[in-house]
Nucleic acid binder design. Structure first.
Length: 268
DNA sequence: GTGCTTGTTGGCCA
DNA sequence: GTGGCCAACAAGCA
């Protein structure tokens, strides 16, 4: 379930290898979809022998930096089922392990069952272009109420649910976070973006930031989310709203399975 | 066998 | 050109 907090959590998992050299790069299945458009050979040849310097996350994107000059970059998107882990230095690749960075005392492993993820490789002192072009992070100063209001206006005839999933404005928000945000803001997921009054748009902006902050804090502490969140009830048939105990509803909105409380989030 | 799935992209259409 | 919708991608699970 890699949305913003899970991506940030994944980033930290590989921190175990920071400052250490990559001795060997294993790519057991170079033709998997995760490597579409990537020069796997260059990735393997160039990263071998280099030190793992730093990592960064923005939304669902990850960027790892390597090499003495810091000029080697490994970009990553976890897709639907991507996972980062740290295993022993001698771990043999499993069926879904697609990239293994072998270090002296551990292996940094990327695995991805469904292959919706992506691994990119870039050489150069500057970070890759695609990274520089990403939308400003939700918790940054550039994520303003004005930027959100303008976006809602431009996308006026799209449902709020679909709008929140657009990475160009809400980097890192995925299906469950979008539902959590709308539930907390008492907004119906099918409401058109253009229908929000300025005060409601501001409330949505605040709630996007709050859910992002709380989920990051929560995953750091407990690796889970509180039972008071919609998150813990959304997948059970017969799930109840943790606030008013109404029966939750589920339907496809904005092309995705959406869960909401018909009482708290009554359509206007 | 059937019909789902927490993401993104490209193609089609208005 | 812009915006909106949806099938497709792959693999596993109920």
């Amino acid at each position: 379930m890699p949305e913003l907090p899970e991506v940030e959590h994944s980033r930290r998992i590989w921190d175990a290898g920071l400052g250490h050299r990559v001795l060997k790069v294993l790519v057991p299945h170079p033709s998997v979809r995760d490597f579409r458009g990537t020069d796997v050979r260059a990735l393997q040849d160039q990263l071998a022998g280099q030190v793992f310097l730093s990592s960064e996350a923005n939304g669902k994107q990850l960027l790892f930096r390597f090499g003495r000059a810091g000029s080697l970059w490994l970009g990553m998107h976890l897709g639907m089922s991507g996972r980062l882990s740290v295993e022993s230095d001698s771990i043999e690749p499993g069926k879904h392990d697609h990239l293994i960075l072998r270090q002296a005392k551990r292996s940094l492993v990327f695995s991805d069952q469904r292959q919706f993820g992506r691994v990119l490789f870039h050489q150069g002192i500057e970070p890759p272009d695609w990274w520089a072009r990403l939308a400003p992070p939700i918790l940054s100063d550039q994520f303003t109420v004005k930027a959100v209001s303008n976006f809602l206006r431009r996308r006026r005839s799209t449902s709020l649910k679909a709008v929140l999933l657009m990475q160009e404005r809400f980097p890192g928000i995925g299906n469950w976070m979008a539902d959590e945000i709308l539930w907390r803001a008492y907004l119906n997921p099918a409401t058109k973006a253009g229908e929000l009054e300025p005060a409601t748009a501001a409330k949505l902006w605040r709630t996007v930031r709050r859910v992002t902050r709380l989920s990051l804090a929560s995953i750091q502490k407990d690796w889970d989310y509180p039972a008071t969140w919609l998150f813990q009830h959304r997948w059970d048939d017969g799930g109840k709203c943790p606030r008013c105990h109404s029966q939750l509803r589920r339907a496809t909105i904005g092309g995705r399975t959406t869960c909401w409380c018909p009482t708290c989030q009554a359509a206007r």
